[in-house]
């Protein structure tokens, strides 16, 4: 990828992230931290590519660790965020679902 194209992507993504979070109420800080923690679980895709291109035993081992950790990030991040936001809704509306 062209370095400058990457720079433009980085710049636009940085402003996007800033805009998305600005003016968010304090009660949503922790769920949002958790939610964004889930979003960088996309590292799983990169880990799969790295493992898929690994040739030597060492590379395969580290690539496997990468996939293992990344899957933990994505799945754990989702489960925890989902539970947290579910509770949030319950306390808002008084519904019964835990």
């Amino acid at each position: 990828m062209d370095g400058f194209t990457a720079l433009y992507i980085f710049m636009l993504a940085a402003f996007t992230g800033y805009e998305v979070i600005s003016k968010v109420p304090v009660i949503l800080h922790t769920p949002l931290m958790s939610g964004s923690n889930f979003v960088h679980g996309i590292v799983l895709v990169g880990a799969m590519v790295a493992l898929g291109q690994a040739d030597t035993g060492t590379e395969m081992f580290i690539g496997f660790i990468a996939v293992l950790l990344a899957a933990g990030n994505a799945v754990g991040g989702y489960v925890v965020t989902e539970r947290m936001l579910g509770m949030f809704k319950t306390s808002q509306k008084g519904a019964s679902k835990a």
Partner: peptide, 17 residues
Amino acid sequence: PAMMIAGIVVGSAGTLL
């Protein structure tokens, strides 16, 4: 690019957070 965008969005949102 998906990793770049998701990563940097979280990087900047996380910094502000």
